[in-house]
Design a protein around this nucleic acid. Structure first.
Length: 472
DNA sequence: ATGTCC
């Protein structure tokens, strides 16, 4: 029989943990057991692995046992979940996928959970589901906010009648194409002056200091995925709507985007830190949280707020450029984050409310819920419904995964539905086709308790990122 | 969502 030579891969193969014990075991075996067979060595090492405490004084194997024992003792203890979950309310349960409900069920078992809610556009995400709302006590969950921190809607209602858009359609289209920047990486080369870049957090938090150059370059850009900028028509529906605008039809600009690479890196860095500081059972490990009183928690909170303000600044620059280009003035602006965390009150106590793909809907709070590129979006006023955690959906929600949409929708299908609705699309992939989304009217009907509809936005010229290389 | 693992 060929002489057995131990190696690291073999040790990992029999179940030894990655770490310092590997080199120790190799040296011990090669020194003291060089005449043993592979089977004998395996048997011996498995016994030590199963009960290292019994071998701490062993003449030959003690070094291995000590390393194993140390790793076991030093490994941070998994934080146990609540035995009994806090309550959460589901809106539109009949069209929410099982994965999203499962994730929400995990979230309301977190030791810091106070209450939850699932919005009718919910679908499975990473950590908290998209459309998930979670109130916690003195803790913030980076992946309860999401990767695109401060992803938001911004609607500007412009002092131009509908006839200007229909009469100068080509000009509106040309400006939308030339004055927006889409795509991964996306850099805006001029017109990027904003006070957000002067914020002291960029100097005070080391991570933000490293991200500032990227933030400067990407300011005023839109990104990719489901992000868009579009011209359309707003109908103000009700004179009693507190919108301070007479009912009627107005040209409007609607945008959807977030905090670009800067926010993404903030999210990923702090969730990594949270997972080290807050080890949770595997099925909820992405919901790792930071204590708000801890240094890391306070840093994340500042960085998250800066990313939110940065996202807001991006929208404002986009709107300023485009509205100036078509010669209009803003009559009214409605805007809101839908990936963010806020300090709010719930049942009389201070909580942190995470909304990951959910629109704030406190009493009287205005928000925008988009439909799809061919379906109307809505200006809504929150009803302040506490059981729904003062929230509403952030859109129609997907009914098809991106991959399923790419497989089942053709370019012909997309062109047909655009034509039917009189919508011009610049860029945009099949995975963003209207058919990939739920029916917005069904979704709105499922959240009548949460928001009142006070205006309607109909898209006319839509700009999205160009489709990825896997598409035509 | 993000140049999709610093």
């Amino acid at each position: 029989m060929a002489k057995f030579k131990i190696n690291g891969k073999w040790l990992l193969g029999i179940g030894y943990p990655q770490g310092p014990v590997i080199s120790v075991a190799m040296s011990v075996i090669n020194t003291n057991y060089k005449h043993s067979t592979e089977d004998e060595v395996r048997e011996l090492l498995l016994q030590v692995l199963a009960a290292p405490q019994d071998y701490l004084e062993h003449a030959l194997l003690d070094k291995i046992a000590v390393k194993l024992y140390q790793e076991e003792v030093e490994k941070p203890a998994i934080i146990p979940l609540k035995e009994e979950a806090v309550p959460y309310t589901v809106y539109g349960a009949s069209f929410i996928d099982e994965g999203a409900v499962k994730q929400m069920t995990g979230a309301v078992h977190l030791p810091v959970a106070v209450a939850g809610a699932l919005m009718p556009d919910a679908h499975q995400g990473y950590g908290l589901p998209i459309g998930g709302v979670l109130a916690t006590e003195n803790a913030v969950i980076p992946y309860g906010v999401g990767v695109d921190i401060g992803c938001r809607m911004c609607l500007s209602i412009i002092d131009l009648p509908e006839t200007v858009l229909t009469g100068q359609y080509d000009k509106f289209k040309k400006e939308l194409e030339s004055k927006t920047v889409f795509g991964a990486g996306g850099i805006l080369k001029a017109d990027k002056d904003d006070a957000v870049l002067d914020r002291k957090e960029f100097e005070e938090i080391p991570l933000l200091k490293r991200l500032k150059d990227k933030a400067v370059m990407q300011l005023g850009t839109s990104g990719s995925g489901n992000h868009f900028v579009e011209w359309g028509i707003v109908e103000v529906l009700d004179v009693e709507n507190k919108l301070d605008l007479p009912p009627g039809r107005y040209v409007a600009l609607l945008s959807h985007s977030g905090s670009r690479g800067m926010g993404a890196q903030v999210a990923n860095e702090y969730t990594k830190l949270a997972r080290e500081l807050c080890p949770l059972p595997q099925h909820v490990q992405h919901l790792a949280y930071l204590d708000l009183n801890s240094e890391a928690g306070q840093e994340y909170w500042l960085a998250m707020n800066l990313a939110g303000d940065y996202a807001s600044a991006c929208h404002h620059l986009i709107h300023k450029r485009l509205i100036k280009a078509v010669g209009g003035n803003i009559l009214l602006r409605v805007e809101n984050h839908h990936n963010f965390a806020w300090k709010e009150r719930y049942e009389g106590k201070d909580v942190i409310v995470h909304r990951k793909g959910a629109t704030p809907a406190g009493e009287g709070v205005l928000g925008v819920i988009p439909g799809s590129m061919t379906a109307p979006g809505f200006i809504v006023r929150g009803r302040g419904y506490e059981q729904g955690l003062n929230s509403a959906s952030h859109g129609a929600g997907r009914q098809m995964s991106r991959s399923k949409a790419l497989k089942s929708i053709t370019g012909h299908d997309l062109r047909a539905v655009l034509k039917e609705h009189g919508v011009t699309l610049i860029g945009g992939g099949l995975d963003e086709a209207p058919m990939a989304y739920k029916d917005i009217n069904t979704v709105m009907a499922a959240q009548q308790e949460l928001v009142d509809i006070i205006g309607r936005f109909t898209p006319k010229i839509v700009r999205m990122a160009d489709p990825g290389p896997s598409e035509d």
